[in-house]
């Protein structure tokens, strides 16, 4: 969608975006691991103003039974936006868009999971978007793969996703909601960082070939930064717990 006259500027004279970011700057990202007690694994991500909660169940028995696969685990995912996640109330019924996102998220994570280790079982992922501000599918993918690791499901690598796009003729990283709507192009990319394989590549808008290549490049660089945050988040779950329990009172040392 070309930027028509009268629409507010997405990039100011100093070369900063609406929220003050540089072209290749990510929004602040925070990931918490193991936030849900009843799920086998869980993660909560805050990515800019996006707030997403992910729960992972399994491997567990498949319901309904006839869906089970004899040689591998069934991997299911549900992406859902809460009615209060956007300005106008969103109907809680799964929309066309949510069905699509559930599918692309499922297909982008499945290649990393060793499903063949758990035949006749299912691994279920529930992604709840509590607050949306553009880029929820990328944030969802990033958080889900952390939650899978937290559940102790064997995976090849943590999948990480990040979008890039074109606003006011410039290629930028990690589009926010306004940039997505008013900009010219949006391209979410998910990669397996260790091998550099791309597991999700969607595009909405128009890029020239050079622009596409540049956008893909900055997406991959962004993904690698987020991957470091993912690993840090998993480590923190254990290190923080350790710190809270470690200091045993000194008095007990002498008495034995």
């Amino acid at each position: 969608m070309p930027n028509k006259k009268g629409v507010e500027k997405l990039i100011n004279k100093k070369g900063r975006r609406i929220d003050g970011r540089k072209f290749d700057e990510l929004r602040p990202i925070k990931i918490d691991v193991g936030v849900l007690n009843k799920a086998n694994g869980s993660a909560y991500i805050e990515w800019g103003k996006n707030k997403i909660l992910v729960g992972v169940y399994g491997p567990r028995e498949v319901h309904p039974r006839h869906l089970s696969k004899y040689d591998k685990a069934l991997f299911r995912s549900r992406y859902h936006m809460a009615p209060f996640s956007v300005a106008e109330r969103k109907s809680p019924a799964p929309s066309r868009r949510e069905h699509e996102l559930s599918k692309v998220i499922r297909e982008c994570l499945e290649p990393t999971i060793f499903t063949e280790l758990f035949p006749r079982t299912s691994i279920d992922v529930f992604i709840e978007v509590l607050q949306a501000e553009g880029g929820t599918r990328c944030a969802g993918i990033t958080a889900t793969s952390v939650a899978l690791a937290d559940a102790g499901i064997p995976i090849k690598d943590l999948v990480v996703a990040c979008a890039s796009g074109k606003i006011d003729g410039k290629i930028v990283l990690d589009l926010s909601d306004i940039e997505d709507q008013k900009g010219e192009a949006d391209m979410p990319v998910a990669i397996i960082p260790r091998t550099g394989e791309i597991t999700l590549l969607q595009m909405d808008g128009i890029f020239t070939q050079d622009e596409f290549e540049k956008a893909l490049q900055i997406s991959i660089e962004g993904c690698k930064k987020i991957n470091a945050i993912q690993r840090e988040a998993i480590k923190n779950k254990y290190l923080v717990e350790k710190a809270s329990i470690e200091p045993e009172p000194e008095e007990t040392v002498n008495e034995a």
């Binding site: 690598d157 943590l158 260790r194 690993r231």
Partner: peptide
């Protein structure tokens, strides 16, 4: 190293 904390894919 021995007993090093690792995450998937390391």
């Amino acid at each position: 190293e021995r007993r090093q904390f690792v995450t998937p894919g390391e």
